[in-house]
Design a protein around this nucleic acid. Sequence first.
RNA 1: GCGGGUGUGGCGGAAUUGGUAGACGCGCCAGACUUAGGAUCUGGUGCCGCUAAGGCGUGGGGGUUCGAGUCCCUCCACCCGCACCA
Length: 950
Amino acid sequence: MEYNPRPIEKKWQKYWESNEVYKVETNPDKPKFYVLDMFPYPSGAGLHVGHPLGYIASDIMSRFKRHTGHQVLHPMGYDAFGLPAEQYAIQTGVHPAVSTQKNINRYRKQLANLGFDYDWSREVATCDPSYYKWTQWIFLQWFQHYYCTAADKALPISQLVEEFESKGNTETTAFENQDTIRFSASQWRDFSAREKDDILMNYRIAYRKTAYVNWCPQLGTVLANDEVKDGKSERGGYPVERKPMVQWSLRISAYSERLLHDLETLDWSDSLKTIQKNWIGKSTGAMVQFDLESTSKKIEVFTTRPDTLFGVTFMVLAPEHPLVDTLTTDEQRDEISAYQKKAAGLSERDRQSNVDDISGAFTGGYALHPITKKRLPVWISDYVLMDYGTGAIMAVPSDDERDNKFAHHFKLPIIPVVDKTSENPSDHRIINSDFLNGLSVEKAKARIIEEIERSNIGNSKVKYKLRDAIFSRQRYWGEPIPIVYDREGVAHPLSVKDLPLKLPETDDYQPGEDGRSPLSKIKDWVNLPNGYKRETDTMPGFAGSSWYFLRYMDPRNDDSFASSEAIEYWRDVDLYIGGTEHAVGHLIYARFCHKFLYDIGKVVSREPFKKLINQGMIQGIIESIYMDKRESEPARFVCSSIAEKEGLKNFTNILVHADFVNEYGNQDSFLSEESIRKFLNWQPAFSKAKFECPGGIFQKGKFNPHPGSNAKENHLLTHSEVGKMSKSKYNVINPDEVIEEYGTDCFRMYEMFLGPIEQSKPWDTMGIDGVSKFLRRFWDLFFKDGAFTINDENPPKKAKVTLHNTIKRVREDIERFSFNTCVSHFMVCTNELRKAKTQSREILEPLIVLIAPFAPHMAEELWHLSGRDDSVARASYPDYDPEVLKKDELTYPVAVNGKKRTELTVPADMPKQELEKTVAENEVILKWKEGKDIKRIIVVPGKMINVVIK
RNA sequence: GCGGGUGUGGCGGAAUUGGUAGACGCGCCAGACUUAGGAUCUGGUGCCGCUAAGGCGUGGGGGUUCGAGUCCCUCCACCCGCACCA
């Protein structure tokens, strides 16, 4: 019988669904295994062939673990709030809920088509009120907790209020904002409700503070970093400035040390851990205060090199620093405000990237060196960022590269303070530094910190780069923040019974006044009967995605985000698969959220994701054609062979839809006459253009060949390069089309066969034929003379060796996530068994289960053909018998001086000495020995032999 | 700028701890079957070398070792991320 995948696949997908084969319950009798795919955002473009890569890998793992006796949780859902749906709503008027649901339906269909073993009864979407009820609940917990550094965990804010009532905050161990004022118990009692609320905002895990946003006055809206290109809005190209705005934030920084420390316990790649470590950015140093000449205020700086304190020759503030105004003298005021304006137009990244382009302005003000009392000019420059550290630095041009460039540029003095004449950094000694002279850098650090603390000008300090996360979005399509404000502006949380606070209906998605959220315009929702007003900001995308892995454990629970029984059983994710793009954002937020819930006793593990694998991207081929820059009206397109001759610099590349390109993905991909017509249909603006090939010219719908030209010369060769697969590059390959042609099992195995899961690689349509051919051959193993045939004959020894070898290799390679080599093993196995010509049950039946995680539909069909009634998913995975694999002869490669020269087949138990003797007498070795001596013979048992001849 | 990653035949890749470089697949070449082939089957295929003997080969250069794709130093090229895309 011929292998015809599509009907089989559709049949079994239906069977799995109607029989709930993959439904999972908590079952304390079995060990659990939780496999999770990173939460997809259901974009309007649907899935392309790159998305399923990780899903297939996790599906194989999940099926494998089920075959080996585990209770497997493998869920799927949608990160459904987000900017694109809102953008689409602004452009088309379609409600985000409607377009999102449509996209979800499409995703669901595409995912089902891939044959995954998801338990669909656990599907969730973050925009579903029954889901975001719990996102809001978590927000309320953040609001009602603070971080206690003594207990090293989050505690209820009510405890902190009690502490303030009895002792004020002078000895508090609570994690607090930098500029928090000190007060006594009696002062606390005298504060107004509003003042108390303001103070508590310095402590809450979810709190309000002023932060800088990308403000675009013309669009009247706050933009995401993504929407800003070169200081201009991507939409419209209007100027964007940095504007302070009061925003909800999360006190993630309180968890810095734990987030850093617990990385050690995780089975993640070293590179990913390093990325997180750098992101958290722990540094040890000192806070130092500098007095100012003209005011009693002080500039506070953080430095990791307090040992270079005597090398400070000037100070630099961020242009937005609050002290700039006070410090600026009248003469300098114009220059300073001009510079501030310029800096406001630059994005943070621009400011960090432009190291060669040094700029700054002198305020005219001076600080005093805390020890020498020398006058230090105070500058502002965009290389100092307000959100980093204190927004101010002490500049040490002798030992900091950026300070050094700045000093050279503005001709500021440089005092060398570290003698670096020795090559060995540990021999470097401090100079020009009074009592530090002669000390090593490390000793000087300790000594100066002592001095700083003694004279009360600062203190030692551990700092983290990790910033608190801004949690407000001035958008419609997100979770409403469950907070109301009274007439005094005091924030009050909603009570749990009022959750979910549903997103109100509207058809106006334009921003409100001053860039406020569209919700601010829905007056009857904002204004409550008692005079209170609702918060109108919504939550960011990471709100819903920071805890979704917990909801899957018990997704329909309405009394808590998940029952304690479910959490106790499933605990954490055993295997998490997703892209590196989440390396810092999502993975830090989710870890923070999990740790917080651990602190308040709602989860039982310290970390959410035990093992994590980053899948690579599947890249596409970007196809383009050459357009002459020197000629327009009509435009002139040429074959790449002509462009090369005339010089590529004369041409610009115009993208071509991959669908039109003949031999797409090949070296000599080209446009034919027919495809040029398709191109013109697609881009009518070029309808008058001419297209030159070596063999002729196409213009105005006609191809005029040069006399005597051949067919190949009539190809307009395109330019092909490997790059992102994306809608904007017109090179998206839809898995549905591939599946329709080759089948799901083939698609799954081919994606795995492409290469290691972590690596990026281009999609190559040609190679899939090989996998398709393999599957047909594998299928044919079960058939004889056109009929399905399995018998109880004794299999030949060779077939047994093949089977057990394959079992061994596949099991080992699944365990180490090497799925591409698994497919190779199946191919080798099939090639060998085809020669063995056996229909023995002993060989064929284990093979069905062995391949089931990879090609589940085919396996299910063969399993039932072989007479089974139950799903193959419930069969246990075959194990290999080491006895079968024992060899009595070994073939050694024999090398001379490391180069293989011959082979030697000997009994497996031959003693080493005899082996050496045999080698020494070997004729090939004797030939190489001629005139020289054998110095050594190295025998690596079971591996190889090396003869050293000199 | 900061941080991370990757370089092996014409192509995707294999080589688990330093031990036969190129498994497996694509492509290509030859043959068989065939009315036909973009179907199927058989064989070959890193490069140079007349078959051979042999030489050269894992981005470039250097080193450690009996032995290096793998370890060390150095240089080069490309890709990805950077706090409001998700």
